[in-house]
Design a protein around this nucleic acid. Structure first.
Lengths: 125, 125
DNA sequence: TTAACTGTATATTGCTATTATATACAGCTT
DNA sequence: AAGCTGTATATAATAGCAATATACAGTTAA
């Protein structure tokens, strides 16, 4: 399990753990039913409290990326790609609606909006 | 000057004052060069410290909605369409950032996003 | 069965950002 | 001069959050 903590990054530790594991699940590096490192083991490796790793795992579980069996361990959940996709699509649609309204109230053209989207996409890579 | 403070609302007092005055300016209830209540007078009415009303006015001035003449008072600024436009642009950028992040985490392509924007724009007319 | 592992629950510490404040100051008006 | 206006600085009080220790309870394997 490759997890790196950058103390300078500004992001809280539990969040760094959360997002790194999440990425590995989404990318497929971690597969369904793979066992995650125990919250205590990982905490020891990272030299932090296990409460912090626990918090990261809690988030992951709440979002449906992992599941937990008490006294046994935490495992990668079945990838419900469609679910994730639909949830995100709904959120994206809401954002777009907001954008369209804002754009209308200040005479921003369609081309301008698309430009902005493209720009932002290129920034992210 | 009608300003109501809801202590339960969760929003800080200075922000409630800020947004209520802002609304009145945007709606036209307060017109260009209208004098606002003095920060001390308003504070007295609302039974709060004048530092709090001052903060609300500071925000309004920073955003360009009012202007101040030392030792005289605060006045509604000329309605600046560009100002509103910039505010909206900022909000739109924030929405786009969110969208880009969401899209990345469910492998939604640039084309898909642009399609969605176009679709939404056509719906609105 | 016990030692060593797993996750859980509760309370607490420390820190940082924010809200709201008092007090002392300086300029305008009458 | 009295009484308004806004200004500047320093301070108190909160609230929220990150990270933690400690005590608990279930599983596994020697």
């Amino acid at each position: 399990m490759d997890i790196l903590i950058y103390n300078k990054s500004g992001a809280p530790i539990y969040e760094q753990i959360y997002s790194q594991i999440k990425s590995q699940i989404i990318s497929g590096a971690l597969k369904e039913n793979d066992m995650l490192p125990s919250i205590r083991g990982l905490a020891k490796d990272l030299r932090i409290s296990f409460i912090t790793t626990k918090r990261a795992y809690e988030e992951l579980e709440k979002e449906g990326f992992i599941y937990t069996i008490k006294a046994k361990g935490c495992y990668v959940a079945a990838k419900n790609v469609e679910l994730l996709r639909e949830e995100n699509l709904k959120k994206i649609e809401e954002h777009i609606e907001q954008i369209v309204q804002l754009a209308a109230s200040c005479n921003l053209s369609r081309e301008n909006i698309i430009e902005m989207v493209n720009f932002s996409l290129e920034e992210q890579g």
